[in-house]
Simulated assay, not measured.
Amino acid sequence: MANPHSKITAVDPVWDQIKRDAEKAVRDEPLIGGFVHATILHHETLEKALSYRIAAKLSSNEMSMMVVREIVDQAYAADPGLVEAARADLVAVFERDPACHRLLQPILYFKGYQAVQAYRVGHYLWANGQRDLAYFFQMRVSEIFGVDIHPGAVIGKGIMIDHAHSIVIGETAVVGDNVSMLHSVTLGGTGKEEEDRHPKIGDGVLIGAGAKVLGNIKVGHCSRIAAGSVVLEEVPACKTVAGIPARIVGEAGCAQPSVSMNQILGSWGE
């Protein structure tokens, strides 16, 4: 009969792999040992490591690291879905970004991943009525990462933002699950509307670098938006659009464009 007082250790293969990656990184490059220990190896769980990393990046003279970390810890404790999404995002980056060779990398080095996790905490604060605190998180994410995501935006799981420079996502934007986008993407409005005014991006969409999707329009699931396009009208599911203004130029070409990350228009028939 099992001892009712015995401690049950949770199995967490993702976190275990991250720690193995971290230990190897320290062996290979001892000069980063203090950084890796503080960020990864001193923590018992992924959520504790993430709260430390977010606090280290967002803290300033205006709000201490201790206070930011307490806010993140409380959010993670109240909403386990935040950590679930963080795991899905981590796997998405590892699987889709050819520059990512270890699960450790996004947590330590990739500002797209870090910015999205900080946004998620800000969105939690927004949804729970802590609007000024949410704005503070938005401000710091913009200042530190060059990524401006309004805390009111709704973003699904399995998100990969590659390079993540100059990303803008508006207040009433909705982004589905398993979406990939590159740098300089804007999901914005078209003027001074104050109600529902931002795009609704379906699941599995791939948005190329520099693309602008403007207005309260729907982008259908598993579609592709070519780099540099300006999208002003609804995009049907499983299509490729390109141009200024964007027009349908062909099929999406595969079941999951956001996973394949193939951005070459001529690679699938137009």
Rank of each mutant, 00 (worst) to 15 (best):
V26W: 02
K24P: 01
E70A: 14
L50M: 14
V83Y: 01
H101D: 09
I40Q: 12
T39L: 12
A118Q: 03
A115G: 13
A56G: 04
I71D: 04
Y113F: 15
F110Q: 07
S60H: 11
L58Q: 08
D73T: 00
A85M: 11
L58A: 10
H43M: 14
I107H: 07
V26E: 07
F94R: 11
Q105A: 08
Q17A: 12
K48C: 11
A56P: 01
A92E: 03
M63V: 13
R102V: 00
F110H: 11
A75P: 02
G33F: 02
I40R: 05
A115D: 07
K48P: 00
Q114V: 05
L103D: 04
S64P: 00
L104E: 11
D28G: 09
V67C: 04
A38Y: 01
G34L: 12
V36G: 02
V91D: 02
I32R: 15
K48M: 10
P80E: 13
E47A: 08
Y113K: 05
Y109K: 05
M65G: 13
V36R: 04
H43D: 10
R102M: 05
S60Q: 09
L50Y: 03
G33S: 14
A56Q: 15
P106S: 09
S51H: 14
P13C: 11
V36F: 01
A99S: 04
L82W: 01
A85I: 05
V116W: 05
H37E: 13
I54C: 14
I107C: 08
L82K: 03
W15A: 07
P13A: 11
A92H: 04
H101W: 10
V36E: 09
V26C: 09
V14M: 15
Q105N: 10
A88Y: 00
G81F: 00
Y119H: 13
P98G: 10
S59Y: 07
S64K: 02
F94L: 06
W15S: 09
M63T: 08
E95I: 03
K19H: 00
F35K: 08
R69L: 06
L104C: 10
D16C: 10
H43L: 11
G33E: 08
L82I: 04
V91Q: 12
S60F: 01
Q17P: 03
E62G: 13
C100D: 01
R120I: 02
F35W: 06
N61E: 14
Y109M: 09
L31C: 06
A38C: 00
M63N: 05
A99K: 00
E29M: 06
Q74Y: 07
M63F: 10
G34V: 09
A77W: 06
V26I: 15
I54M: 15
Q74D: 14
Q74W: 00
A99F: 00
Q17E: 13
L104G: 07
M63D: 06
E95F: 01
D21R: 07
P30I: 12
E95A: 03
R69C: 14
E95R: 09
V83R: 06
A118K: 02
R87I: 11
M63E: 13
D73R: 12
P106K: 09
